[in-house]
């Protein structure tokens, strides 16, 4: 398998008053194409920070990240925005959708930004909504569907731009167990079918159990990195 994300000796410090908080302390880890990985650890272990740095939403204090062979540290703000648009899909804990757009428009949004023609992107968006089980809800606004359904829309949108990786930050944190299980099953299925790498930051044991590779962070360092047998 080919490496899709490579983190080299990542360090991230935050200045809080006169104190320096070390969120990441020399994290080196690689992710291969098609992997379904969880990054877990207690609060403050650095899992969200690692995810944000991989997603180019934050810059490391030192170290380097390569996504699809491209070093993020050498990219301009605009290039990083284009990188997120074209290569990275995001699923956040909450507030994922644009409230003025319908479910279908939310899914279409990324491919519309990419300049995909109307017929292609609409067909693709409908197919994705079908895959995440939201057929018939295309014209609803986000406020008119449940939290679990909103997360499914977010997953569909994350895949709509044909990304190399999908980064999910605590995607089940606001969901009940039924909706969590359904979302995890959906993400596993899409990971298998699309071959897109899923990296999920979580402290939810059910999520960790669903992934085929589990990385644990403690105090900003990788303490375990286990792969399940295929």
């Amino acid at each position: 398998m080919s490496v899709i994300v490579e983190c080299r000796n990542l360090v991230k410090d935050y200045q809080q008053g006169e104190t320096v908080v070390e969120a990441l302390r020399g994290v080196s880890v690689s992710f291969e194409k098609g992997e379904f990985v969880s990054i877990s650890g207690p609060s403050g272990s650095g899992k969200s920070t690692l995810l944000h740095i991989i997603g180019s939403l934050e810059q490391p204090t030192s170290g380097e990240v390569l996504v699809d062979g491209i070093s993020l540290s050498s990219e301009s703000k605009r290039e990083l925005a284009d990188m997120r648009l074209n290569r990275i899909g995001f699923v956040f804990q909450a507030y994922n959708l644009l409230p003025v757009l319908t479910v279908l428009e939310n899914v279409e949004f990324i491919s519309q930004l990419q300049g995909v023609d109307t017929a292609t992107r609409r067909g693709q968006a409908r197919k994705l909504l079908d895959e995440v089980g939201l057929n018939g809800l295309e014209d609803r606004l986000p406020a008119q569907i449940s939290g679990g359904q909103q997360q499914r829309v977010a997953v569909a949108r994350a895949l709509a731009g044909n990304p190399a990786i999908v980064l999910a930050d605590e995607p089940t944190a606001n969901l009940d167990s039924k909706n969590s299980d359904e979302l995890l099953a959906l993400m596993s299925k899409l990971n298998r079918e699309s071959g897109v790498t899923f990296i999920v930051a979580t402290h939810d044991p059910r999520v960790i159990a669903h992934t085929r590779r589990q990385i644990t962070l403690t105090d900003g360092q990788v303490t375990t990195d286990q792969r399940q047998a295929a």
Binding site: A81, D82, F90, F109, I110
Partner: peptide
Amino acid sequence: TREFGLLQALGFRPSW
């Protein structure tokens, strides 16, 4: 504010 953050995360350029 949160929405503009989300838009940036999704790949919206600052000029957009």
